[in-house]
Design a protein around this nucleic acid. Structure first.
Length: 273
DNA sequence: TAGGCCATCTGGTCCT
DNA sequence: AGGACCAGATGGCCTA
């Protein structure tokens, strides 16, 4: 959708239907259906009359157009077909709009600078960043588990720790040095998922420089370091104050299986594509 | 002006 | 059969 706020305002992802319809008509005049002499309602009303239907509302006419048999479709004029096409287009727009909403939701939870002065991540950058973020969090979790095992033994026993102690530790908030610290509420951060060139230096630059840098380094987003993950093995996970991992069960959730390669989305049926 | 990003349209394919 | 999904084409907007 939009790559910056100015484009958000000037190019909404869901333009008014009237505008779209007018644009479509305008395109039709220059396109395949150049003879637009009467309204779609007129044509559908005529067709409805053929089917013994009268006094149709606009919605009725639209649904009628969609329920017509193939035989009826052959009888449709270009305008009726265009009405159906508009309906299909509308659905597609809605689908893409929903996709963009989901993409915005993903951007919101990404550890990246947000705000009116910062350009939105592009879709591809958002997806690549999300992937690296997930990999990084998975690696962090693995590291946590490893340290817990080292400290409390292989049995994973909590020892003298009481769950109440959890509230005073990592659950209270992001620990300095932890990747989560560079979250949306911190506009200027050292970005854990990006190469140094696009981390603190780039993000601290005003305006578009941040994402411009991201775009200039797309390739770097694609390949997290093998084994060490996006952050490398030297990443510091634990609180500076306590230096102790949280031993509670929440911190020991089995990590998801992480692969170093993108996992293809499952397509339910056999898809030759 | 070229390139990047995006929204939209469109036709094809798959699924329910 | 209708809707969802997908990918290619197209054109607009913006930035360097």
């Amino acid at each position: 959708m939009d790559s910056d706020t100015s484009r958000v305002s000037s190019r909404p992802s869901s333009p008014e239907v009237d505008d779209i319809f007018l644009a479509t008509l305008k395109k039709s005049v220059h396109g395949f259906s150049s003879a637009v002499s009467s309204t779609q309602s007129d044509h559908l009303s005529e067709l409805a009359s053929l089917h013994g239907l009268h006094g149709l509302s606009e919605e009725d006419e639209e649904s009628l157009a969609l329920r017509l048999s193939k035989k009826d479709h052959k009888l449709l004029s270009e305008n009726e077909l265009q009405t159906i096409r508009l309906k299909i287009n509308s659905r597609e727009r809605k689908r893409m709009h929903d996709l963009n909403v989901a993409m915005d939701g993903l951007r919101e939870v990404m550890p990246y600078a947000h705000g009116p002065s910062v350009r939105k991540l592009s879709k591809i950058a958002t997806l690549l960043l999300a992937r690296n973020y997930i990999l990084m969090l998975s690696n962090s979790l693995e590291e946590m588990k490893r340290l817990v095992s080292e400290i409390y033994g292989s049995g994973g026993h909590h020892g003298g720790f009481h769950p109440a102690a959890c509230g005073t530790m990592t659950h209270a908030g992001p620990v300095p040095g932890h990747p989560v610290v560079s979250h949306a509420s911190h506009p200027v951060v050292h970005h854990p998922l990006l190469p140094p060139a696009v981390s603190s230096a780039s993000l601290s630059a005003p305006g578009i420089s941040a994402v411009t840098s991201v775009r200039a380094h797309h390739g770097l987003l694609k390949a997290p370091g093998a084994g060490a993950g996006p952050l490398g093995s030297s990443f510091q996970h634990w609180g500076v104050g306590t230096g102790m991992p949280c031993p509670c069960s929440m911190c020991q959730v089995p990590p998801p299986h992480v692969t170093s390669m993108p996992v293809p989305m499952p397509r339910l049926a056999s898809d030759p594509k």
